[in-house]
Simulated assay, not measured.
Amino acid sequence: MFGRKKDQAASTGAPTEETTKPVGKNAPTPKRSAQQAQNQRPLVPSDRKAARSAERAQRVEAQNRMRLANETGDERFMAARDRGPQKRFARDYVDRRFMVGEYLMFAVFAFLIISLSLSRFPQVTMNITYALWVLVAAVAIDSFIMSRGLKKALVARHGSVDRGVMYYGIMRGLQFRKMRLPKPQVRRGEDPR
C-alpha cells in the first residue's frame, strides 16, 4: 500500500534480497557458545604491567608528536582547536603584529607587587590603579582594531569567517609571544602565509 511492489523494484534494476544472498553456506552454523567465546575479550588484560607500560608509551609518543607539531606548525598532529586554514591564517596575522595585550599579565603582576608594597600611600596606589585601567582600555582597543583587520583579511582570503576564529585570534593576542602554542611561524612585520 505505501511501498513499492516487488515487480517495480525488479523493473528498476535495484538488487533485491534474493540477488544479493550467496547460494549455500559453505560451512556449518557455529554454536552459540563458540560465537560468544569468539567475541569476548577480557576487561582486564592478563599482564597489567605490560599493558600499562604500553599505554604510557603510546601517550608519551602522542605528546611528543603534538609538541613537535606545535613547534614546527605541522597541522596533522596539532590539537583540534588549532587546525584549519583560517586558524593558521589567524595565528600568522596575530603573530606579525605587536599587541599591547602580550604584556598585560606582566603589568598586572607588577601592579599587585607595587600596590602591596606601597599600601601606606593611598594616592600612589590610586594612580597605579588608574594606570592599570588605562592599560586595560588600551588592550581592549588594540584587540578590537586587530579583530576588525583580521575579519577583513579572512573574508578577502577565504570568503567567510568560521565560527570561533575571531575569539581564537583575540586570545592568541593576549598571550606573551614566546609562550604561544603553536609557536609563531612568522616574524613581526612579515606577511601571513
Score class of each variant (00 low, 15 high):
1 M>K: 13
4 R>K: 09
4 R>T: 07
6 K>G: 12
6 K>E: 04
8 Q>K: 09
9 A>E: 15
11 S>Q: 07
13 G>W: 10
18 E>V: 14
21 K>H: 11
25 K>S: 11
25 K>H: 08
28 P>H: 06
31 K>Q: 06
37 A>G: 06
37 A>D: 09
38 Q>G: 15
39 N>A: 09
40 Q>E: 05
41 R>A: 13
50 A>R: 12
50 A>L: 15
52 R>Y: 05
52 R>T: 15
53 S>C: 08
54 A>E: 15
57 A>E: 10
59 R>M: 13
60 V>I: 15
61 E>H: 04
65 R>A: 15
69 A>L: 14
74 D>A: 05
76 R>G: 05
78 M>C: 08
78 M>G: 00
80 A>Q: 09
80 A>C: 02
81 R>K: 14
91 R>I: 03
92 D>S: 08
92 D>F: 01
93 Y>W: 15
96 R>P: 00
97 R>Q: 12
100 V>H: 01
106 F>P: 00
109 F>W: 09
113 I>Y: 03
114 I>V: 12
115 S>P: 00
119 S>M: 08
123 Q>S: 13
123 Q>K: 10
124 V>R: 02
124 V>N: 00
127 N>I: 03
129 T>D: 01
129 T>N: 14
135 L>Q: 01
138 A>F: 10
138 A>W: 08
139 V>S: 04
139 V>W: 02
139 V>R: 01
144 F>D: 09
149 G>D: 12
153 A>R: 11
157 R>K: 14
159 G>Y: 06
159 G>H: 08
159 G>K: 07
161 V>W: 03
161 V>G: 00
168 Y>Q: 14
168 Y>E: 00
169 G>C: 12
171 M>C: 03
173 G>L: 07
174 L>I: 01
177 R>S: 02
179 M>C: 07
180 R>K: 09
181 L>Y: 03
183 K>Y: 12
186 V>H: 03
189 G>Y: 03
189 G>R: 05
